[in-house]
Simulated assay, not measured.
Amino acid sequence: MRTLDYLEFEDRLRGGIVTATRQQRKALRRQGVDVAESPWRAGDPVRSLGTAFAGLGYFDDYDVAHCNTIGPGSLAVARHAKREDVPLVLHAHTTGEDFAGSFRYSERAVPALKAYLKRFYAQADVVLCPSDYTRSVLESYPVDAPIRTVSNGVDVESLEGYESFREETRERFDLEGMVVFSVGEVFERKGLSTFCRLAERTDYDFAWFGHYETGAAASAEVTKWTQNPPENVTFTGFVEDKRMAFGAGDVYCFPTKNENQGIAVLEAMATGKPVVLRDIPVFEEFFEDGHDCLKCETEAEFRDALERLAAEPELRERLGANARETANEHSLARVGERLTDVYRALLNGEVPPESTEPMDG
């Protein structure tokens, strides 16, 4: 079986969608699947015009088309797949709900984006999404296609050796004591204002490891907090190795307002870090308050959670140990098994069954 696993604009994108796609590819290859990363015969759409004129075709050959973004290249792949009767999988990493609060004026674009997503995802033979929460969002649009849930998973191997980055990273960014940290793109949707206001009300060092916009695309909140942060908050910008964050940080704090799953949460759990999360619906599926994380609704609850973790080393240890077990439930082996079974069902002319567990056979 040869499948296309396509991430349009891969060289320009950052964040969870890139991580999720690369984890898919790694998981699939471990299952023995031949994975093509580009749909174009000559590797890109411009050079492939030459192969098309030469009669060799514009698109490459693959048995299943799997697209992870929603841009014009993915739309072209979808239309080609429908013309050629190639099973089409569209992965819903993007919803209107998780786009809001990402960039300046992003909320204004949400109605138009939802209308587009409704049409775009409806082309699929199956839409995959990382959580039942995301599935419920798509069903509310509604999206007229079968929708199935597959965890994004976590690549534990990619985090190996994170401990060795601790001292160097803490020294580089002048971090001391119990460091409260977050990882990923700096967006207001991800709880930026809560993160910073929480820092103002505590004495811990806070660090957010990840790129942030500085130009016209930056929201007012991102500009406000990154240009004039509280004294105990460090915005590192892009770091060359994510293990720096998980090595330097002690408590992963993620007051996000909306997520489709949260790969960085799973990564923090895989490194045994105690995790403090906003109590939002998507996290109800995966994480249990008091077992593998602490969930909070108000800034006062977040502050109390941090104070408990600072005062109770045994709580940090217990939450971290349970978190590792939770992360193991999202292994790439499970992701690969689930994806290959979805592909096989489609190639057999079947709709993949309703299950988040690997299918028999």
Rank of each mutant, 00 (worst) to 15 (best):
F181S: 09
A78L: 07
R148M: 12
D304L: 03
V233N: 09
V137Y: 06
L49C: 11
P230H: 00
R12V: 04
K118E: 13
R324D: 04
A100W: 01
D85K: 14
A52W: 11
G210T: 08
A20M: 12
L113N: 06
V33H: 10
E354V: 07
G215P: 12
T51A: 13
E357V: 10
M359H: 05
A305L: 04
A42K: 08
T134K: 09
R47F: 06
R303E: 14
F103H: 08
V276E: 07
S355T: 13
S136G: 13
V351W: 13
R334Q: 02
V251A: 08
G361A: 14
E188C: 01
L294F: 00
E240W: 15
D203V: 02
A27C: 12
P229E: 11
R83N: 12
A100M: 04
E317W: 02
E284D: 14
R41N: 06
A323Y: 08
R172D: 03
R324A: 01
D85Q: 11
I147E: 12
L159C: 03
V335K: 15
M359R: 11
P72H: 06
F173K: 01
A145Y: 15
E285L: 14
D5K: 01
N152I: 05
S106R: 01
T326K: 15
E213T: 04
Y343I: 04
R22C: 00
R243C: 02
S48L: 02
L347H: 05
E213F: 13
E10S: 03
V33M: 14
D292H: 04
T3M: 04
G32W: 09
E97H: 11
M1P: 01
R14S: 09
D304Q: 13
E176T: 13
V156I: 15
T271L: 08
F286T: 11
L346M: 04
A311P: 09
F181R: 09
F195S: 07
R197E: 15
L332T: 03
V18Q: 08
E350V: 05
I280F: 03
V143L: 10
E221Y: 02
T202G: 02
D125K: 15
A100I: 09
A220E: 15
A52I: 07
A310N: 15
T214A: 00
A109F: 10
F103E: 01
E188K: 14
E107D: 14
R303G: 05
P353S: 11
E163W: 00
E284Q: 10
L294K: 02
E163I: 00
F99N: 06
S131T: 06
P72R: 04
A345M: 06
L75D: 04
T256K: 06
V335E: 11
G161V: 09
V86F: 13
D144R: 15
S48Y: 08
